[in-house]
């Protein structure tokens, strides 16, 4: 009888996360993972039902961590500028601390698994964000926008800076390092764009 080993399972998960983050979800396979994690394919199937089961477990863990960090010191009744600032700082911290998880979730976003992942996630994320935005619109601190436009202005600039940072460069090999100063500079412009 093969024993389940928590440490081993953790190591396998970490390896899987890295592979998807670095090489994409399309080329990810249990065989590839087995080789990289130096275990037999049979061992992987002791811990996980199939490839989808493994990927969804990873989604759940990464998503929970992301949520936990995003909502630290955050309250949906905060003023818009204050709340968005807390979110920027928290999201930046998460991205810088867990770059593999960030890339992993990015891969999931555009894959067939995304809907299943969203279905698994805690509703509190949606509810929190929703009430934050609605409060802000009611108080006339935020223009009324579609969720896609809102997100593209409110958060995408931050994620883009982090992408440059993680690549170490931006255009034409121009060196780039993320900093609090750059973040706040961008944040002020984002705030300007979103205020009525």
């Amino acid at each position: 009888m093969r024993e389940r080993d928590e440490q081993k399972q953790k190591a396998i998960k970490e390896k899987a996360m890295q592979i998807v983050a670095k090489q994409g979800i399309e080329s990810f396979s249990m065989q590839k993972l087995a080789k990289a994690a130096k275990v037999s394919p049979a061992t992987l199937y002791i811990y996980f039902k199939d490839k989808e089961d493994l990927l969804l477990q990873l989604c759940k863990e990464a998503g929970e961590k992301m949520m936990e960090m995003t909502f630290k010191n955050f309250d949906p009744s905060m003023s818009f500028s204050e709340g968005l600032k807390v979110q920027w700082v928290n999201r930046a911290k998460y991205c810088l601390k867990y770059p593999d998880q960030l890339m992993f979730l990015e891969q999931i976003r555009y894959s067939g698994l995304h809907e299943k992942y969203m279905g698994m996630m805690n509703e509190s994320f949606k509810i929190n964000m929703h009430s934050f935005v609605h409060n802000a619109i009611k108080r006339k601190e935020l223009v009324n926008l579609s969720v896609e436009v809102y997100w593209s202005i409110a958060f995408a600039p931050l994620y883009n800076l982090i992408k440059f940072h993680q690549a170490g460069k931006s255009f034409g090999g121009r060196k780039f390092v993320f900093s609090e100063k750059i973040m706040m500079e961008t944040f002020e412009l984002v705030l300007k764009a979103l205020q009525p």
């Binding site: 009888m1 396979s29 249990m30 065989q31 394919p41 199937y45 039902k49 199939d50 490839k51 989808e52």
Partner: peptide, 19 residues
């Protein structure tokens, strides 16, 4: 039980009370 058809070896995984 389940079958991972996405795998090259088409893995059949069975949880059983017996070996």
């Amino acid at each position: 039980w389940n079958v991972d058809r996405s795998d090259v070896d088409h893995i059949l995984r069975v949880e059983s009370f017996n070996n």
